[in-house]
């Protein structure tokens, strides 16, 4: 049995600590250890983008990061978008609703997190910038 490692992370403002096997991906850590099922897992090798989250404010594929590599990180997942006090959707979520931007909805968490980073760095991106940031296999 491989030695387990302690992983301590801040996810959406809450600190969690778990003992995990090194081979556990951050996506599976979020879903199975922390029971945050909003981060979806599609291809599990970095292509589809459904599992995109923010690690220290930067978008990343949570399937291409080990949980042990995220020790000490600040993580934002789709669960962190809704306003906890008012219960209102994040403006990006509301815009997806208003524009029917979900399609089947499976990869929507990845799109929301990607859009969040894009708009934080570039509040009025061009169509080309939006297309190149989106980078999902099965859309656009």
């Amino acid at each position: 049995m491989t030695k387990k490692h302690t992983v301590r992370v801040d996810v959406n403002g809450t600190t969690y600590e778990r003992e995990v096997e090194p081979r556990l991906t951050l996506a599976d850590f979020l879903r199975h250890e922390l029971h945050l099922g909003g981060t979806h897992v599609g291809c599990e090798h970095g292509i589809c983008g459904a599992c995109t989250i923010l690690i220290d404010g930067r978008s990343a594929r949570s399937c291409l990061t080990l949980a042990v590599q995220a020790d000490g990180a600040q993580i934002t997942t789709v669960e962190g978008l809704r306003n906890r006090e008012t219960g209102h959707l994040h403006p990006i979520q509301q815009a997806f609703v208003d524009a029917h931007g979900q399609q089947c909805g499976f990869c929507t968490p990845g799109f929301l997190m990607t859009t969040l980073e894009l708009l934080e760095h570039n509040p009025s991106p061009s169509e080309e910038e939006i297309r190149s940031s989106a980078s999902k296999a099965h859309r656009w």
């Binding site: 690690i55 930067r58 978008s59 594929r61 291409l64 990607t114 190149s132 980078s135």
Partner: peptide, 8 residues
Amino acid sequence: GHRQIRNR
């Protein structure tokens, strides 16, 4: 790759 890949 993509931005998400270049970030990591």
